[in-house]
Design a protein around this nucleic acid. Structure first.
Lengths: 171, 171
DNA sequence: GGCTGAGTTGCGAAATCCGTAGCATCGACC
DNA sequence: GGTCGATGCTACGGATTTCGCAACTCAGCC
């Protein structure tokens, strides 16, 4: 399942270069391919090849490798609020002790779609997607706060998604 | 460009139903189609049709409409930190006055990939992707804080992405 | 030189995409 | 009741894309 790829990928690095930025470094061509797919995840390989100066087959193999490596996922993204019937929140978590193990525990929860270790007054930022208010309350107060090492949490319930893009490459 | 679709979409709603959850409500079939594409954004229409009980052409038309409406995007997603050489942060913003206009101003910045209006001690949560520390500093201190109505900001620099999924539908 | 492996290219078969025509349904309107 | 327009589905054929594979290039290495 590609969904877990990014998470698991960031767990097993080996050399210094990878442990600094979390994966094998990509050459300019792979970057360009990713940019193409950030604009349109269904763009044909031939069109990408034309844009980056490679044959169709070459693009195909590179894309497959990027997917296998977990460097990239090609997925449909929605605003859960738009899709309806759900409560969403960003939760800041303050941790004492090992932050990474807490992050792993939180990441294991299916309701937590996005988990980042941060520097600042929170050690962890977690995006939570829930069925309704009761569910949200349960996840935050019972599940996340129950993780050993969690000192405190602060919640920011989503009211409206204003922007959502994935095009760091293209500007 | 699909990247702006969600943002622009949330700007022009009309009826009460839409303004409450940000878009036209979706029937079970469209939901099922989205779930399929959340697993694999390149899944063939025929395969999706088989899974949801529709013809290939019907799926294609529905997907196209969902994309046009901005309900869904099909894109490649990466961890910018994995891809390398970039600084990322979540920025909490406290606003006085009209939150929505501030949100729009922030959303207009290309470095801000994700903008949400929230309830809690921040009015806005903004995810910022930058080239380097100087760039990040500039965006936060010069650009975001310069927006009229911004009272204060607090930053959480990303250290490591632990999890990133888009499968609210499948669990 | 000769070997090896990663990356690339070219090509044919199979599968997919895409436009369109035809049909059924539904609500609005007279 | 009948008509009109909009909508959504199926069917189908041609253009395009995907996929698997064999051949090729080019470093690096012994």
């Amino acid at each position: 399942m590609h969904s877990e790829a990014v998470a698991s990928r960031s767990a097993d690095q080996k050399d210094s270069r990878e442990s600094r930025n979390g994966g094998p470094q990509l050459d300019a061509v792979s970057l360009a391919i990713i940019e193409q797919l950030q604009e349109d995840g269904r763009r044909p390989y031939a069109a990408i090849g034309k844009a980056v100066g490679l044959s169709e087959a070459a693009v195909r193999q590179r894309v497959q490798k990027l997917l296998d490596q977990g460097v990239m996922q090609i997925v449909a993204v929605t605003d859960p609020l738009t899709v309806g019937f759900r409560r969403q929140a960003m939760v800041g978590v303050r941790v004492e002790g090992d932050v990474e193990s807490v992050a792993d525990a939180v990441a294991a929860m299916s309701e937590c779609e996005y988990v980042v270790m941060t520097a600042g007054s929170f050690d962890l930022m977690v995006e939570v997607v829930c069925e309704d208010d009761d569910h949200l309350l349960d996840v935050i107060n019972q599940r996340i706060r129950a993780v050993p090492g969690v000192r405190s949490t602060e919640s920011f319930v989503y009211l409206k998604l204003k922007k959502q893009t994935y095009m760091w490459g293209t500007r």
